[in-house]
């Protein structure tokens, strides 16, 4: 949508006023949510206005030339347009917002928002459209996908700041089947996702204090893996559980922990000379790298310590702490 279009700012302004008004009127929405008439709004589209002008011109010609045929045509078209109003409205009415999932991401990459509808009565899933305005005012839109009665939408808004990303109001609209009217509903759902810090920085990872010389991925007899998890791109092939794979199971990675892996302490205060965001980014990069290697590490933040551990859950805890560190809660 070109922001340069005339009256774009006016339109946007009106939209945000209407949106806040609907928020006050409707309150906070909870899932599952059935769409009732009270919250559906409907207005003619630009094509609808053009069509109305066409019909008016036809009616004027019919009246002026006292031509019943033209008048009849005009009234038929007017009736069809008006029944289109109802049909568009019916496509949203009674619809159920079944679920909303919001997946976090690192700052600078896209969050994933998935909304599933149920009991839709459109002809096709892409009769519906979901949109939101991201923090920069950019409009993101997605057509529905999947079966016609249960469309799902995927939006990928990009968060630039780490921390808690609050879901902006969503708009679900439908122009089908005539395209002459747009019926829409605002969804004000309280949901948020964590935006992890952007991994960055090139300070070398602090060496493990007691495991000097323990090469990454060494095959010494001490190693002990403790859990299997699905193999992900980027995992070291050395850590793959080839034996179980050979028995016909899906490829898995062994997660390493404890004695055998390296132990690090990632300390916020060690990163002197960097500002807060750079430190957080650097720590994030270390956490990701260490987990990828299967090393154990502890994270020391001012006012918070996460004890030594490894694995996906540990990484998640660390990243959450980093995401929220230093932010007002």
């Amino acid at each position: 949508m070109a922001a340069s279009r005339p009256f774009e700012w006016l339109r946007r302004r009106g939209e945000s006023v209407a949106q806040r008004w609907s928020r006050r009127r409707q309150g906070l929405d909870r899932i599952p949510l059935t769409l009732h008439t009270r919250r559906l709004y409907i207005l003619p589209t630009a094509s609808g206005l053009l069509f109305a002008a066409t019909v008016l011109a036809i009616l004027a010609a019919g009246l002026n030339y006292a031509n019943g045929l033209v008048l009849l045509l005009g009234f038929f078209l007017a009736g069809t347009g008006l029944s289109g109003l109802h049909q568009t409205h019916r496509r949203l009415l009674g619809l159920v917002v079944e679920s909303l999932t919001l997946d976090g991401a690192h700052a600078g990459s896209a969050l994933s928002l998935r909304l599933c509808l149920g009991e839709a009565r459109g002809q096709a899933a892409d009769d519906y459209q979901l949109s939101l305005r991201d923090e920069h005012g950019k409009l993101l839109q997605a057509h529905g996908e999947g079966p016609a009665e249960a469309p799902t939408f995927t939006l990928l808004p990009v968060a630039t700041q780490r921390g808690r990303w609050q879901l902006p109001p969503l708009r679900l609209d439908c122009e089908a089947p005539t395209g002459l009217f747009r019926c829409w509903v605002w969804l004000h759902m309280e949901a948020s996702a964590l935006v992890f810090p952007r991994p960055a920085g090139n300070t070398p990872m602090p060496a493990a204090p007691d495991d000097e010389g323990h090469a990454e991925g060494s095959t010494s007899g001490q190693e002990e893996w403790f859990a299997l998890r699905p193999f992900r791109d980027g995992d070291s092939p050395r850590h793959a559980a080839w034996k179980s794979h050979a028995r016909g199971q899906p490829l898995q990675s062994r997660e390493w922990r404890g004695l055998s892996g390296n132990r690090h302490v990632f300390d916020y205060t060690q990163l002197a000379g960097l500002d807060l965001e750079s430190r957080v980014s650097q720590l994030t990069a270390w956490v990701l790298e260490a987990t990828r290697r299967g090393d154990s590490f502890a994270l020391q933040l001012p006012g918070r310590r996460i004890e030594t551990g490894s694995g996906a859950q540990h990484q998640q805890d660390c990243l959450e702490a980093l995401a929220l560190h230093g932010l007002p809660t």
Binding site: L71, F76, A78, G79, Q87
Partner: peptide
């Protein structure tokens, strides 16, 4: 079907 819907309206208005 839509035009059939519109039939009563069109006739009455006519």
């Amino acid at each position: 079907r839509d035009l059939a819907f519109a039939l009563p309206f069109a006739i009455a208005c006519f």
